[in-house]
Design a protein around this nucleic acid. Structure first.
Lengths: 239, 239
DNA sequence: TTTAGTGATTTGTCTAGTTGTATAGATGCG
DNA sequence: CGCATCTATACAACTAGACAAATCACTAAA
């Protein structure tokens, strides 16, 4: 096996520079020629390191301009009047749901935070497909607190309707709060399920639902195939 | 194997504009500097695209005066074009924005339908960037009916706030209806504006806003950088 | 009113620098 | 040898900036 690869050590050095805050978001890195001189290597070797950083989303190169540090994420609030009238149903067709897996395990930190549980508390995790006309349009993963909904998996297995399963567990009503939407690139596994190309655009929805006592009962994430689904917010139905 | 050449995609966008009738024979195109700003590109790159159109006999450039659409009754290469990307648009009412271009022209069929106008009616078209902390997070394109909002461009130029500009035109309030969300891949020009990689996931929002009399006053589309933006739908609603 | 002039705007041209891509060769290693 | 890494060179695409030349809008003078 080759000892430390030169381009990799250069990439590490550059990442260290970024981590040290030596270059801030939007800043221009030294030119490839300058970096090549600094590390005393060929420009292509520097390019391989930079390409590694670009793949990781740390930098962005613009031909003729230079290589720039990537911007940091930001939240963007929608107008206050926006509401979900027609929730995450795709293009009006009747949604079908197919459960792929249903297990009970300890919650990770994100799930515990979302459901306001102690870390390590048990949760039911249900993963499955959303179908329209027998075509996969979305992939979902829902997490439910086991303590609040002990018998949920049995009900869900018998009937995939979340509403009825929750009702059987004593949750007569629940409402969605804080839906977050963003665009992502499909991972390999997701792409397989949705029958799309890896890296294709995917609309990710993360939501938390609460019962009338404001206790979280569901932490759900859904990935929609971007080219197959349009979420409609509001009252107008057009196509 | 070069990927999409920027000057070529700009040329295609301009040809699409011509084919859509946004500029008629004899009309003056925006200046090279304005086009450069609109496509976020160097003036030379715009010049290369324009030179391509000039070679094809679609436009004619006059030093000191501008670039004009050729008078020839035109056989536009409508080969397989149809609907290109050069679209941006507005979504949120809050937030900082920077206007890249602001023109008044005849509405195409989609715009006329959305705003319930007769085809050929004049519309104001505003394209620009949404910013957060001086970083671009979204691209917008908003279309307004000229008949309802005659002086809008002047107000928008003085103050990019849509709310205040509409108020100055007599629209005291407006609400959004029928917001459509889907995930797309960033086109070359969009990627440049948003400082993301070509093909990176983008969240597209298409919306129509109406005044209290239910008359459409804005038809907007916004492309959000998927890595940088999360849309937050705050309120509660049934699931 | 007409003319000339002034300054801003716009296209045309030039030089230089930077990243993207392609091809070929050198080097080290199993 | 076969393969991966790195080097070397050349060119294309795009950016950046500066300046010249043509045009236009406006003003002042004849």
């Amino acid at each position: 096996m080759p000892r430390t690869l030169i381009w990799k050590s250069i990439a590490d050095a550059l990442i260290a520079d970024l981590a040290a805050g030596h270059y801030g978001p939007g800043d221009k890195l030294p030119t490839e020629a300058q970096l090549a001189a600094r590390f005393d290597v060929n420009r292509h070797t520097v390019r391989r390191a930079l390409s590694h950083l670009a793949d990781a989303g740390l930098v962005l190169a613009r031909r003729g301009a230079g290589v720039f540090v990537a911007e940091t994420p930001t939240d963007y609030p929608l107008g206050k009047r926006v509401r979900f009238h027609q929730n995450l149903a795709a293009s009006g067709r009747e949604g079908e749901k197919r459960i792929l897996s249903l297990i009970t395990r300890a919650a990770d930190s994100d799930e515990a935070t979302a459901l306001k549980l102690d870390q390590g508390a048990l949760v039911h995790v249900c993963e499955g497909l959303l179908l329209a006309d027998d075509k996969p349009i979305g992939l979902f993963r829902s997490v439910y607190p086991e303590a609040r909904l002990p018998g949920l998996p049995r009900f869900l297995n018998a009937d995939p309707s979340v509403t009825r399963a929750l009702a059987n567990c004593g949750v007569d009503d629940y409402t969605r709060t804080s839906t977050r939407l963003t665009a992502k690139s499909a991972k390999a596994v997701q792409a397989r399920h949705l029958n799309i190309a890896e890296g294709a655009p995917v609309l990710r929805s993360v939501s938390i639902s609460i019962d009338p006592q404001n206790i979280p009962v569901e932490f759900g994430t859904t990935w929609f195939a971007g080219d197959r689904v349009t979420l409609v917010l509001g009252d107008d139905q057009r196509n």
